[in-house]
Design a protein around this nucleic acid. Structure first.
Lengths: 143, 143
DNA sequence: TCAAGTCACTATCAAAATGATACGAACATG
DNA sequence: CATGTTCGTATCATTTTGATAGTGACTTGA
């Protein structure tokens, strides 16, 4: 995939940073509190070469931040930045789609830690309050 | 990437169908009304080999549907199924993220066709009404 | 103290996916 | 009948992925 990063479409822009499955799964795990190389590797069953690259890319793109947690031996962990944390809603919505259309068998559920109730994610337009997809959307050229 | 499709995580499930950038961009274009091979090809600048494969996968996965619009010559177009249409919120949210964190320069905007106002997409939990990400989420094992 | 373990990688190399380009089949149009 | 349109396939070089093994700098337990 070429240079989508200068496209005028914000979706394409987003995809240049996180447009592959591994990156999204890393972000999912990071949102659950994983921070270390081996935690990700074991959780995902990913080859270390690829994990190295993905972590580096996500760090460059500003979704993760390397933080040294041990000087001797030198050890870094990867923590979410604000941009990384703000990616969570995309994942949650993707999960909601997956549950609805690929929900055969037992699936992990996401629970609101305060109420104990299962979360039911929806995308809405904050302006009108309408669910996204229920009203026609018009695409407008930049500026 | 191996067989994520039987993972118990709904996000991983979702990613097996649409876990790459081209597929998402095809869905984006399809949501804007594109249906034909050449429309996608020109819009995306994608190699025809890859477009063929992506369209086939999305069709197999049930996000697109082939529909014959001409018998002679035989011509098919690709239209969104319900599953495909329901993927739009994920894209819109991804776009919102892209706008916030990769929004340099001029960007396409998404307008509510009825009010004429720019859409401001947010993911909320329909149960509590809270924005996703503002309350802690607990992951629960299946069943 | 010495072997074994942990952690965060890198090196190597085969296999698969991607991308560019050319070409084809079946028509429609001028 | 030459050209154009539409929806692809064939071919092949390049790139990316993935599996596996190994490494350096330690720590831990016996």
């Amino acid at each position: 995939m070429k240079n989508l990063s200068d496209a005028s479409c914000p979706i394409a822009r987003g995809l240049t940073c996180v447009g592959d499955a591994w990156s999204m799964l890393i972000l999912r795990d990071a949102s659950q509190g994983l921070t270390r190389f081996d935690e990700f590797r074991k959780s995902l069953g990913i080859a270390p070469t690829i994990l190295t690259r993905r972590l580096a890319t996500l760090t460059e793109e500003g979704l993760l931040e390397k933080r040294r947690y041990s000087e001797r031996p030198p050890r870094d962990e990867y923590v979410l930045t604000a941009a990384g944390r703000d990616f969570l809603p995309v994942l949650v919505l993707l999960g909601a789609w997956g549950r609805q259309y690929r929900g055969e068998g037992r699936l992990t559920r996401y629970i609101d830690a305060e109420t104990g109730e299962e979360i039911e994610p929806v995308a809405v337009d904050a302006v009108t309050g309408a669910k996204i997809g229920t009203r026609p959307i018009r695409v407008a050229a930049p500026e």
